[in-house]
């Protein structure tokens, strides 16, 4: 079922009730967006971005990084200077 695939991609666990509920809701959203396909866009150039701007760059110049303590401050778990996470083997 589509909703189970989407839930898996987002790492969400849904109950059977929720699956039914969200299936209907997501279906409704997609139908609503489908309206856009009614527009004739054959004469419109595809847009890469909503703003008419290209080439926004920075120079290759060093800036100071976060102190490690600050960077690790929000980590739920740590091991010395590392973030510690559940072991994941693909």
């Amino acid at each position: 079922m589509e909703i189970e695939h989407v839930a898996m991609l987002a790492r969400l666990k849904l109950s059977d009730d929720e699956k039914g509920l969200f299936s209907a809701q997501v279906g409704g959203i997609i139908n609503y967006i489908e309206k856009l396909n009614e527009l004739d866009t054959s004469d419109v150039e595809p847009t890469a971005h909503v703003l008419p701007m290209n080439n926004v760059f920075r120079e290759d110049k060093l800036r100071s990084s976060l102190p490690r303590e600050k960077a690790l401050q929000n980590a739920p778990d740590r091991d010395e200077g590392f973030y510690r996470v559940p072991k994941i083997i693909e």
């Binding site: 290759d60 110049k61 800036r63 990084s65």
Partner: peptide, 22 residues
């Protein structure tokens, strides 16, 4: 490059872990 692709952190190899982040 001297710095990362989207920020000014160093790309130097072999530094202490998590010292080149922002």
């Amino acid at each position: 490059t001297d710095t990362k692709i989207f920020c000014g952190c160093s790309t130097k190899f072999g530094s202490e872990p998590n010292t080149q982040t922002c």
